[in-house]
């Protein structure tokens, strides 16, 4: 098997997966949801959406500590409430760089599925490939990926210890 080198693996804190699904292609609810979250200073570190004529499937993550507030805000909008479901206790496992390589993607997906790690969501970004997994399986999943790729030096999967947060009560945008 060809060796594939990656530079690192990153593990997030505990998150809640929020899925929005509605059967019309009207996109209104997704921007509305993002607006509600921004209004309450809730970050969405992961969003993936698929828009088809039959409807829109969207998945977003919020920090676990924001789950209750998110549910409360969504429940306050009856039009939105019926289209939203929650999967608590998830986390992000990010490997980088993905090198735009399907081989790398498939190898990582195979490793996870072979060991029955439940992959709830996945998405690439410019340099990284991110999996949304059960939080309890994050460390084991990181070890699995570490064993099927070559990592630089003594790199270990790491958790962020440096956090950037929006530094004001204001949403981004022009000050009104």
């Amino acid at each position: 098997m060809t060796e594939i080198q990656i530079n690192g693996l990153k593990i997030s804190g505990a998150l809640c997966l929020v899925r929005l699904h509605h059967s019309t292609p009207d996109i209104y609810r997704l921007p509305a949801f993002c607006g509600i979250m921004a209004g309450s200073m809730i970050n969405l570190p992961f969003i993936s959406t698929d828009h088809q004529s039959s409807g829109i499937q969207a998945a977003c993550c919020v920090e676990a500590k924001h789950q209750m507030l998110t549910q409360k805000l969504v429940d306050a909008d009856p039009m939105m409430k019926e289209h939203v479901s929650y999967i608590p206790d998830v986390g992000l496992l990010t490997l980088f760089p993905h090198q735009s390589s399907l081989k790398l993607f498939v190898r990582s997906l195979r490793a996870l599925s072979t060991e029955n790690v439940r992959v709830l969501e996945m998405a690439s970004s410019i340099g990284a490939l991110t999996y949304v997994l059960d939080y309890a399986q994050l460390d084991a999943a990181a070890e699995l990926l570490r064993s099927c790729f070559k990592l630089d030096g003594n790199h270990s999967p790491f958790r962020a210890v440096f956090v950037v947060r929006q530094g004001t009560q204001l949403k981004p945008g022009p000050v009104e």
């Binding site: 993002c34 970050n43 969003i47 981004p172």
Partner: peptide, 14 residues
């Protein structure tokens, strides 16, 4: 820090 800050998705959709 797009992934770390609230409001970026909202700003984009707006």
């Amino acid at each position: 820090h797009f992934g770390d800050r609230f409001g970026v998705a909202d700003f984009t959709y707006c």
